[in-house]
């Protein structure tokens, strides 16, 4: 069984604030799900290479040149941010 402190630690790593009831519920859920993940222990993969993609893909590259977006698109994207100042995204103080 995963401990409450471990759940709290993962929540912090994932940048998610949890209420107490959530913490309790997740402790139970995580223990069940992680136990289910243990089924993979039985598989012998000693001859396998790790594959990240299901189909064979080659690297797709393009020239490293900037593509200018239309000002109205830039404007729209900027407007999406919760806090702006001029054309900048405003970030709260770090410490």
């Amino acid at each position: 069984m995963i401990t409450k402190e471990e759940v709290q630690h993962i929540a912090k790593l994932a940048r998610i604030e949890l209420a107490d009831e959530e913490l309790k519920k997740f402790q139970k859920d995580f223990s069940q799900i992680l136990e289910f993940f243990e089924t993979l222990k039985d598989v012998d993969v000693s001859d396998e290479k790790s594959t990240a993609y299901s189909i064979a893909l080659n690297n797709v590259t393009r020239d490293d040149i900037s593509r200018r977006e239309k000002p109205e698109v830039v404007e729209k994207l900027i407007r999406m941010t919760p806090q702006i100042e001029g054309n900048y995204v405003k970030v709260p103080k770090v410490l």
């Binding site: 949890l18 995580f30 709260p92």
Partner: peptide, 24 residues
């Protein structure tokens, strides 16, 4: 501050299954 904004925004606005999967 920045960290608390991250944590509160994600804590309040994401649903249980999304939190569960991000955390696992």
């Amino acid at each position: 501050n920045l960290l608390a904004t991250y944590m509160r925004s994600r804590g309040e606005k994401l649903g249980a299954e999304v939190k569960r999967r991000i955390m696992l």
